[in-house]
Computed example of a mutant assay.
Amino acid sequence: MTRTSVGRFVSEEARTKYLAAYDRAMDLWPDPRRELDVETAYGTVRVHHYGSRTGEPIVLLHGHAGHASNWYPQIAALGEHHPVYAIDTLDDPGRSVQRVVAVGSEENAAWLGEVFAALGLERIHLAGLSYGGWLALNQAIHAPERLASVAALDPGGIEKVPARFYAHMIGGLLGLLAPRPLRARLGRLLANPALSSPPEMIAPLMLGMRSYKPNTRPAARPFTDEELSSIKLPALVLLGSRSALVRPRQVLERVSALIPGVRAEIVQRAGHGLNLEQPDLVNAHLLRFLAAHGQ
């Protein structure tokens, strides 16, 4: 669920190299983009902001070992009528700096709530992918006060992480060693969008895996039936039909049975990274959901 110790780069040289790659990856976002640093009891949180000066805010949470650039296909579409904020998770490599481990569900909701309060955000539409989806649902369960809705994309925490997910990760890493002309084909075969993503986005991921320790995080704790049933916000759950993390039909059935009024759908021809594999379709789902539940 969270790293058991504060994450650090193995050296200052490794940190400098990673952050240079990170900054190049953030150039995938449209301009103008603002960078904000928010102090919390758990560390300094980097937030990237883009979009309209009016409308209800959208906050985006990336997946394990990722960073804010992973949302680049969504930013222009979501930011046309909403201010968009993307957060660097505290215990992942990035420009957030962790000082204290957030232990358990309540503390993870606490640091995120501190960020929202410092930014002065209310009626937030919170969306997360994978581990970010776990964080989003966790916020809806434990600290929903500032939220207007929650969207979870192929989230952790709905069922136990299967062994095939770890095999999928290893296959993706091996695929990145293949000649570049073959990567797109392997990406389609493995339902792994990283293999055909811009190299600027992949570079910090690879550097972080080599130079940020500890470089693993325990699997997200599955939510209980009672926790999922306690979500009273409008909720959207999107699942990749070829996901390596979840069994989409089983997860669809569970969230539909437990989360009141949830809109749950399977995105066809998409794996775990559905926002990168089917960006136009995911953007359309998100925008329809926001239009239905905004003021």
Rank of each mutant, 00 (worst) to 15 (best):
A244G: 05
W111Y: 14
R99T: 15
R242M: 06
W134Q: 07
L281P: 03
A203N: 04
R288M: 07
N283I: 10
V237T: 02
W71V: 03
A143F: 02
G208L: 10
L195T: 01
V10K: 14
A194Y: 13
K160W: 05
V103R: 15
G128Q: 02
A25Q: 02
Y212A: 09
T2S: 13
A14K: 06
R242D: 02
R188P: 05
F223W: 06
Y212K: 08
D225F: 03
P218D: 12
V97T: 11
E145G: 12
R288E: 13
E277I: 08
E277F: 08
W29I: 02
L28N: 01
T40C: 04
R3K: 15
G7T: 08
S5N: 11
P73G: 11
H142T: 00
R34W: 03
H272A: 10
H293K: 10
L135Q: 12
R249F: 02
Y72W: 15
R99G: 05
G51N: 01
S211P: 01
A264D: 01
G43C: 04
G120E: 04
A178I: 05
P83W: 09
P73I: 10
E35R: 07
L137F: 02
S105W: 10
G113A: 08
N215V: 09
Y42K: 01
R34F: 04
H142D: 00
G79N: 07
L61Y: 08
H82T: 09
R15K: 14
L60M: 07
A291Q: 13
T4A: 14
A76S: 11
A291C: 03
M206V: 15
R3M: 11
L190K: 06
A167Q: 13
L137Q: 06
L137I: 01
G171T: 08
Y166R: 04
F116W: 13
P32N: 07
Y85W: 04
W111K: 00
T54L: 11
E39K: 06
P179L: 12
R183E: 07
K232A: 14
L252G: 08
W111T: 00
Y212D: 10
E56I: 07
T16R: 15
Y22W: 15
S256T: 13
L190Y: 06
A65N: 14
V267K: 11
V45N: 01
K17V: 14
L239A: 08
W29Q: 06
L186M: 15
P218K: 14
R95E: 13
R180S: 12
V47S: 00
S241N: 01
M206R: 10
I170Y: 12
A203I: 06
G157Y: 03
V103H: 14
I124M: 05
T16M: 09
S69P: 09
A244T: 03
P179D: 11
H125Q: 11
L147G: 04
G187A: 01
P260A: 11
R3V: 10
P193W: 06
R123S: 12
P57F: 00
A203Y: 03
V103Q: 13
R180P: 05
V59Q: 09
I75T: 07
A86P: 02
A14N: 08
M26D: 04
T44M: 07
P32R: 09
S243P: 02
A292I: 09
P204E: 07
D27L: 06
S69F: 09
V38N: 00
Q278E: 15
L135Y: 01
E265Y: 02
